[in-house]
Amino acid sequence: MMLFLFVCMCGGLGAVARFVLNTSIQRWWSRLFPLSTFVINVIATFCAGLAAAAWAHQVVPESTYLLFVTGFLGGFSTFSTAINEMVSLARNKHFGMAAFYLAATIVVPVICVSLGWLVGSLAH
């Protein structure tokens, strides 16, 4: 039960961190590309790769992994917002940008989680 409550708390902290970063980026970024969501998801996937490597190499216990990945990163990352932004771009007839954002949202995070895993594995 305590792990459940701590995961919930970490999820809330992740959501607050996402809000702060999202708001900060949106203050100076006014272009069509939804940079704030993209940056948040890139950071989250890199950190998820690091955490997965740390857990796989038994550097951190499973409970710490769950608190960070399921809790904090679960609240921090936002794939649903990215999909909504893609639909919004397409609905506003920005088809090229929507396609680019779709590709970037799929490809770049896969690269980031792989890099996070690599960095986390090298640190072990």
Rank of each mutant, 00 (worst) to 15 (best):
N41F: 00
A82M: 12
I83L: 15
L73P: 01
S63Q: 11
P61Q: 10
A104H: 13
R91H: 08
T64M: 11
I106L: 11
G11M: 04
G75P: 01
F68H: 08
W117P: 00
V16M: 12
H57G: 07
R91E: 06
W55I: 13
A82E: 01
G11L: 06
L13K: 08
S63T: 14
L73R: 10
F68S: 10
K93I: 09
M97Y: 13
L3Q: 07
R31W: 00
S77N: 05
E62A: 14
N22V: 10
A98M: 13
A99F: 14
F79D: 01
I43G: 07
H94T: 01
T64W: 13
N92W: 04
F76Y: 06
F33P: 04
S88G: 08
G120Q: 00
T64C: 09
R31C: 00
I83Y: 09
A17D: 03
H124C: 10
I83F: 12
V7H: 03
F38M: 04
C112D: 00
I40K: 15
I25E: 01
G71P: 00
V107N: 00
T81F: 02
L32K: 08
A52H: 03
F79E: 02
T78K: 02
S30Y: 07
A98W: 12
L118Y: 11
T105W: 05
L50E: 12
L89D: 10
F6P: 00
G116M: 08
C47V: 10
I25S: 02
G75T: 05
V119C: 13
L3N: 09
A90N: 08
M1V: 15
F33R: 07
T23Q: 08
G116K: 09
V107H: 04
F19C: 14
A104T: 14
N22D: 15
S80H: 07
C47Y: 02
T45K: 02
K93F: 11
S114N: 06
F38I: 08
V42S: 03
S121T: 14
L3W: 01
L3K: 06
V20W: 14
V42P: 00
G14A: 08
V20S: 10
V16K: 10
F100G: 02
Q26H: 15
L73M: 11
F79C: 04
L89C: 12
A90C: 08
A44W: 11
P109L: 09
S36T: 11
G14F: 09
S24D: 01
M2A: 10
H57A: 06
V16C: 05
S114A: 09
F46N: 05
V107S: 06
T45Q: 06
A82C: 09
L115A: 12
F4T: 12
W29T: 09
